[in-house]
Simulated assay, not measured.
Amino acid sequence: MSDVDKLLDALEELATQEQEAVLATVVKVEGSAYRRPGARMLISQVGSAVGTVSGGCLESDLAKKAWWLTEHTQPVIRTYSTGIPGDEPGEEEELAFGLGCNGTVHILLERVRVGQPFLPAQLLRQVIREQRPAALATVISGTGEAAALIGARAAVSPSGTLLQNGSPAVLVGLLMDDLQAAFEYKKTALHRYKMGAEQIEVLLEYLAPPRKLVIFGAGHDAQPLVAMAKQQGWQVTVIDARSHFIRRERFPNADQVMHLSLEFGQVPSELTTNAAVVIMSHSYLQDRHWLAQSLNQRPSYVGQLGPRSRTERMLAEIPNSHSQPAFEQLHYPMGLDIGGDTPEVIALSLLAEITAHFNGRKGEMLKAREAPIHDAEPVTQH
């Protein structure tokens, strides 16, 4: 279960108990930090928390102070920095020293009230339920009178509907084009706008649906792969032509467990579109069958387990394999070279490569990376 799933479950539980909460959201990072904009933590009235906004440095302070910082009900920004000018040590310097990563983190704190619509939660639920992305814009700073807009929002839902929380029409008008563009660029970014004589800064989040993983093959080595992917909050489907393998009790955490015969088993294209496909049945006939189908669909990643020569033989037997739509997404042998041969290590290797692929990374050791670990969020001036 992902942090988002846990946070939404906690919100529902608090709502049934008619308890308020405070949502802490990372909205801006300068320099280095453990979590990036969009990371969220939910804080209950008793100080317990779900989710993280740092590597453990900030959570305690936020849990202690979130309620009195928001006692006037208006959203506020809490800023933590590794270096604060001044000679006198104090609480803020101690907090800054605790970060230890040479960065400044800006966190939005806002009350979640019982019985009142809360746009971020509403949008995240829709993204998960409909398996389609959304875009959310949040004002995080403003000059002059525009400072009162901190926390104001507008969004475009997965169905394309405009959603807002009573934000001024002039603000929504400023944001609309960039909200729509978020679906094309698929990136979270900071935008700065002029509103008359004032300026505002807006975090525009691209809210992606959970990643999809389709595993062809219900062997023992598929079980840890399902478990690890579900820990990341992915939507996981397991498919096999062998009825004695593809049983629900063997994959209790999978979202779907499907028995498809080789004679009649056509994989629904909606399952594999934009998904990561892993073929690991250890049956040559099955693997070739599923590989042929996967290459003819629109997955974002196709991985074939096994020796290179085995996959080359399959490709030679699949008509026009090299001209199929997904051939450029094919990885074989799949996985990162981390050594080991247990099912758990293999699952780790596969999931690491898929994650790197989705994030546009090479999966190399960080000590060999000359650029910063995290890509900086782009800033657009309007």
Rank of each mutant, 00 (worst) to 15 (best):
Y185K: 15
R192H: 07
A182H: 13
K212E: 07
R250W: 10
E201N: 00
R250F: 12
L171C: 00
M195D: 11
Y193P: 00
V236R: 00
A218V: 03
A189E: 10
Y185T: 13
R192I: 10
G217I: 01
V214K: 05
Q180D: 15
K186N: 13
G196D: 13
M195K: 09
S243F: 15
R242G: 01
K194V: 05
K187W: 09
A227M: 08
G233A: 15
P224I: 01
A181S: 11
W234C: 07
L175T: 02
D178T: 14
Q235K: 08
I200L: 01
I246G: 15
L207S: 05
L179F: 10
Q231T: 10
T188F: 14
H220T: 14
L213N: 04
F183M: 08
H220K: 13
A227D: 05
H220W: 12
Y206S: 08
Y193I: 03
L213I: 05
V226F: 02
A169Y: 06
I239R: 05
L174R: 03
M176F: 06
E249Q: 14
F183P: 06
M176D: 07
S167I: 05
K230Q: 14
A218G: 09
L203R: 02
L204H: 04
Y185Q: 12
R211S: 08
L190Q: 01
Q235A: 06
K230N: 11
M228A: 02
A197S: 14
G219I: 06
A197N: 12
L190T: 02
A227W: 04
F183G: 08
T237E: 13
A197C: 10
W234F: 11
H191Q: 05
L175W: 02
A197E: 15
R248H: 15
V214D: 10
A182S: 15
Y185W: 11
D221P: 04
E249C: 12
D240F: 04
P168A: 07
L203D: 03
P209Y: 00
V172W: 01
Q232V: 04
A181C: 13
F183H: 06
I246Q: 08
L175V: 03
L204S: 03
L175Y: 03
A222C: 13
V202M: 02
E198C: 09
P168I: 08
R211H: 14
A208D: 07
M195C: 14
G166C: 04
H244C: 15
L171A: 01
A197W: 12
I246M: 10
L207E: 06
V172I: 08
Q231E: 12
G219V: 07
A182L: 11
L171E: 01
M228E: 03
L179P: 04
A218S: 08
H244F: 12
E249G: 15
R211W: 08
A189K: 11
K230F: 06
L175R: 01
P168S: 09
Y193S: 02
H191E: 04
E249L: 14
K230S: 13
A181W: 12
V202S: 02
Q231K: 12
Y206T: 08
L225D: 00
